[in-house]
Design a protein around this nucleic acid. Structure first.
Lengths: 344, 344
DNA sequence: GTTAGCACTCATAACGGACGAGTGCTAATA
DNA sequence: TATTAGCACTCGTCCGTTATGAGTGCTAAC
C-alpha cells in the first residue's frame, strides 16, 4: 500500500510547511514542484499530497485550494527537528540574583528582545524557588507604632513587611526579638516551622508574643509567595501580523489572555511542576492547555539559575510558527542569559 | 445671523452626542426629531444641524450620512457637564500605605474594576512622592561577601539592595556604619546630600569608605527611583468593543502603546508635574498628547494619598466616550479608594 | 511510476442595480 | 418669520451575477 510515510512524502511535507510558514497561504502542487529539488511534476506532487492528506498530515481549507499543514503535520516536523538539535543542548550555569528589581528589569528586557527578534508574542516568568528556606530576619523600628520586618529567602529574594505595634518597643527589646527570631527560624522551610516551635518562641517573647505572631505570619507569606508568580509579557501586538489570529474575536480573546495572565500563570505552574522538565516543550494548536490559544502554538523553555530556582520562557504564535528558528533562538537565549548573569 | 449657539442648538447637539454614544452610528435628523422633547420636524432639525456643522460642532462622514460629533462638539459637551458636577467634588483624605506589595495588588484591582465597569481601557500609576526624603537605612550582613542595605523612603517606600563586600566585616563595624549613615543622612532629600557631607562620612568610615560610597549610590538610586514610575493597565481588549478603534492597524498600535507603557508614563509624568492639578482632565481626539491615541479620548484623574503622594488614574476609550459616566465613576472611585485605605 | 492534459471546483474580485437612510432645497403653511 | 411637508438627489451598503484563476482529481499516454 502507498499509505506509508516514505522519504519523498516527508520532503514534500517539509516543503509545504516551509512554504506555508513564509507565506501564510495554502500551498499548491505546482509551487512544490518548482520549490523542491525533487524534479517532479505538479501532477505527481498532487498524488503525493492526496496521500499526505489521507494520512492526516495536511489539509485543504476548501476544495481547490492548496494544502496547509495540520497539527499532526507540525508535530511530525517538530519532532524530527528536535531530534536533530538535541546534541547542542547546553547546560545552564548557576547564577546569582542580586537585586529583585534588577532581575525584573532583566526579565522584561529578555521578553522584549525575544518578541522583537521572533515577531511572536512572548512571556517570561520570574524564577521560583521550590524549597524556600528562610535566610535572615531583621526587625527595625520605623517610628513609635511601626516596625519594619525584612525577610530574606534563600536565593536572596527579599520581602519587606510593615507591622503595626500597639505600644512602642525600646531598642533592646527589638534586638532581643531579632536574636530570638533568627536563632529559631533561620535555615528553615515552611514545613519545618511547626506549632511547637512557635509556641516556644512566644513563651520566650513574653509580653511581646503578639509581635512574634505577626512576624511568623509575614514569614509564612514570604515563603509561600511563589503562589503569585510574576509573569512579564511582550510583543502582544505581534498577533496582528498573522491574519489567522487577527480577526476581532480571536485577537480580543488572545489579548485578554495576555493581560489577565491567569492562564499563563497556570501554564507556567504546570511546566515548572514537572521537576524533570528542563528542556523545551512545544504545544501545537489544539494541544495547548489554554483554550483561547487553540489556534496558536506555544513553545516553552524552562531555565534554571541555580539549584531549584527555575522559571519559564514562552513564545506564542500562530500554528504556522517557525519552530526551527524559535527553538534555536530559545537555546541561544539561555546561553546569553547565562553570560549576562555571570557578569553582574 | 443664525450662527449662534442658542438653547435649541445645544439641545440638538446633546441629543446627537447621546445618541451617537449609544449606537456608534451617525445620527440622522429624523432620529433626533423623535428622540428629543422639542417636537420639531426632521426638516427643522436638518436646518439646525446644517448650522451646527457650519459652527464645527458636528460633521458628516459623507454626504447623505447622519452627523457625528466633532472633537469640538465633545469638548463643549464635556465643559458643560463638568461645570454641573463641580459642586460634588469631594476631598481625598490622607492615607497610609503600609506594604508595597499590598499597594500593588490594590492598584491592579482598581484598574480592573474600572475597566469592567466602564468597558474602556484603564491605567493607574502607583503614587509618587515628589519630595523624597530618606527615612531610614539598615545594613545587615547576609554572608561573608554580601551586605543587605534596606533603604526606607518617606511614605514607607522600601528599597532593598545587595552589596558585595571585598573583605568580611565584623558585626561591630556594621553597627558603627549603620549609626554613621543614619545620623548623617536621615531626613535628607537628594538635593540636601552634598559632597562635603559625603567626604566627611567617608573620612569617619576610614578603611570602609568604599562601603559608604556604595550605600550612598544605592540611596541616590532609591530616592530618584520615581524615574521609573509603575503603571498598571487593564481592559485593553475593550478597544475591540468600538469598531472605530478595532481595525487591525489601529488596534495593533493601541495595544502596543498599552504594553510598552512608555507613552503612558510620559502622560502620567506630565499630569503629575502640574502640581496644582488635583482634578479631572479630559483629552479629546487630537487633543491627546499620545499620537497613537488620536482617535481616542483620555480622561485622567489625579489622586493624592497624603501630602505629596500623588498618582494618576486614566481611562482610554473612543472619542464617543460616555464622558458623563466616566467622570462620575472616577469621582466615586476616589471616594471608595479613600474608604478602602482608611480601613487597613 | 511519471506526466500531460483537461474538465471541474470554488474562493475572490469586479461589476451593477436596487435599496434606503439621509440630505438640501423649495414652496406651502401657521 | 419660523416651521414643515414634499421631493429630487446623493451615496454607502447589500446582493446577485459574472469573470478570473488557482488548484484539484482523473484519465490516458509515455
Amino acid at each position: 500500500m502507498g499509505l506509508q510515510l516514505d522519504e519523498r512524502k516527508l520532503k514534500i511535507l517539509q516543503a509545504i510547511i516551509h512554504n506555508y510558514l513564509e507565506t501564510g497561504e495554502p500551498v499548491g502542487s505546482r509551487t512544490i514542484s518548482k520549490y523542491t529539488d525533487l524534479h517532479l511534476s505538479s501532477a505527481t506532487i498532487r498524488n503525493e499530497m492526496a496521500d499526505l492528506e489521507e494520512l492526516g498530515y495536511i489539509l485543504q481549507p476548501h476544495t481547490s485550494a492548496g494544502r496547509i499543514p495540520s497539527d499532526k503535520g507540525y508535530r511530525l516536523y517538530v519532532d524530527n527537528m528536535m531530534r536533530e538539535k538535541e546534541k547542542e543542548v547546553d547546560e545552564i550555569k548557576e547564577m546569582l540574583l542580586e537585586r529583585e528589581d534588577r532581575m525584573e528589569q532583566l526579565l522584561k528586557q529578555v521578553a522584549k528582545l525575544l518578541a522583537v527578534s521572533t515577531n511572536y508574542a512572548t512571556m517570561i516568568s520570574a524564577p521560583q524557588t521550590r524549597k524556600n528556606k528562610l535566610k535572615f530576619i531583621q526587625l527595625s523600628k520605623m517610628d513609635a507604632h511601626q516596625l519594619l520586618a525584612v525577610i530574606v529567602i534563600e536565593g536572596n529574594v527579599i520581602k519587606n513587611n510593615m507591622l503595626r505595634m500597639e505600644e512602642e518597643l525600646d531598642d533592646e527589646t527589638i534586638l532581643k526579638l531579632n536574636i530570638l527570631l533568627n536563632t529559631h527560624l533561620n535555615g528553615l522551610s515552611a514545613e519545618e516551622i511547626n506549632l511547637n516551635m512557635i509556641s516556644a518562641m512566644k513563651r520566650q517573647a513574653g509580653i511581646h508574643s503578639d509581635i512574634v505572631s505577626e512576624v511568623i505570619d509575614a514569614v509564612a507569606d514570604a515563603i509561600r509567595a511563589d503562589e503569585d508568580l510574576e509573569i512579564y509579557t511582550s510583543g502582544t501586538n505581534n498577533i496582528f501580523r498573522y491574519p489567522e489570529l487577527a480577526d476581532n474575536r480571536k485577537a480580543s480573546e488572545l489579548i485578554n489572555t495576555f493581560e489577565e495572565k491567569q492562564m499563563l500563570t497556570e501554564l507556567v505552574r504546570d511546566t515548572l511542576a514537572d521537576e524533570s522538565n528542563t528542556g523545551i516543550q512545544v504545544y501545537i494548536g489544539e494541544e495547548t492547555p489554554i483554550r483561547t490559544m487553540k489556534d496558536c502554538s506555544i513553545v516553552t523553555a524552562t531555565y534554571e539559575l541555580e539549584e531549584g530556582m527555575r522559571g519559564t520562557i514562552g513564545i506564542i504564535g500562530p500554528t504556522r510558527m517557525d519552530y526551527d528558528k524559535v527553538v534555536d533562538t530559545l537555546k541561544t537565549l539561555m546561553h546569553q542569559l547565562d553570560i549576562l548573569y555571570k557578569k553582574q
